Simulated scan of single mutants.
Amino acid sequence: MELFDSLNDLHKVDATTHRQLAGSELFYRSLFEHHPDVVFHLDLDGNLIEANGSFYKVLGYEAEEVQGDFRSLLPPDQVEWGNACFDKARQGESLNYHLVARHKDGHPLEFLVTNIPNVVHGTVVGVYGIAKDITENKYLRESYKSLFTHLKDAGFILDLNGHIIDVNEAGMTVGGYAKEELLDKSFIPLIVEEEREKVFGSFQRVLGGETMTIDCSLFHKGGHVIVLNITAVPINISGRVVGVIGIAKDITEQKLIERVLQESKQRYESLFMHHPDGVAYFDTQGCFVDCNPALERIIGHSKQ
């Protein structure tokens, strides 16, 4: 009787284990099939054993069109790299890497790939792969990079410590510095001393999430001072500020003209106010606009 009970208990355990394994297999099968990224399984020779729906959707193939070696999906310049990464995975190493594959119509797709060795009883029997299509992200990065590079105004990027991590051609031209003279250097020494505290305060506010526009005087490599109108915005990635990007317009000549006009205005006002003779100013319609103190004394009335 005890033996019968033991066998019966063992049967129950086996049945429970079987159900658990079946449920686990269904879970992983569902995860494999419905994963939004490309998922695939290769044998040790690199032949495709199976792939999920995203694999065919992203690459543009029908299931019957993809057979044999995964390397056939790679452009020639990617085969050696793809093979090297696959070799590491079939030797038991998990790794992440970038890889370019070809869509069915021929255009390249860039993926961030994770390879995971399929290990059974301590032996690698295949390789699983999960590939995230980052082609659009790369296109946007390249577009922004092109825009930054070809801006007519000076462009720069700062890290959280205020070190210059990139500058465009216009930025090098306006300051007279070569890129290697600026990269990894703090921007602070470039600012004239009397404005450094103001400019650094604005930098801190941008790191806090604000967009700032300020006029800033800095030293040209040639030794003279130039004036830039700078708009700086935070670089926000996943809700976290990781740096600052700025666009700077050279307004040195504009500021010089403004100063000359201001000085001229001051000289005129001084001459107008202190001239010993009475002077009055009328608009084009003949209406009185202003007069100097001498005229007020002469006529005995205030201009008010």
Rank of each mutant, 00 (worst) to 15 (best):
247 I>T: 07
256 L>I: 05
287 C>V: 08
226 I>A: 09
286 G>K: 07
277 D>T: 04
254 Q>F: 12
244 V>F: 01
235 I>N: 07
233 V>L: 09
289 V>A: 08
261 L>A: 13
242 V>Y: 08
230 I>E: 10
272 F>H: 01
243 G>I: 01
247 I>F: 05
273 M>W: 05
228 L>K: 14
221 K>W: 00
238 S>K: 10
275 H>Q: 07
276 P>H: 10
218 L>Q: 13
285 Q>C: 01
258 E>I: 02
250 D>N: 13
274 H>E: 06
253 E>T: 08
236 N>C: 09
282 F>M: 08
287 C>M: 07
219 F>A: 14
219 F>N: 15
265 K>R: 14
283 D>L: 08
266 Q>N: 09
256 L>F: 10
239 G>W: 01
269 E>L: 11
272 F>N: 03
267 R>K: 13
282 F>D: 07
234 P>I: 05
226 I>M: 11
223 G>K: 02
249 K>C: 08
283 D>M: 02
239 G>K: 02
261 L>I: 14
256 L>R: 14
273 M>A: 11
269 E>N: 11
229 N>Y: 07
259 R>Y: 12
221 K>G: 05
260 V>K: 14
284 T>R: 11
251 I>A: 03
220 H>R: 15
266 Q>S: 11
230 I>G: 06
284 T>N: 09
273 M>I: 13
226 I>V: 14
232 A>N: 09
224 H>R: 10
255 K>G: 04
271 L>N: 03
249 K>M: 08
251 I>Y: 03
286 G>D: 03
221 K>H: 04
264 S>T: 13
242 V>D: 07
246 G>Y: 03
235 I>K: 02
282 F>R: 05
261 L>Y: 12
233 V>D: 08
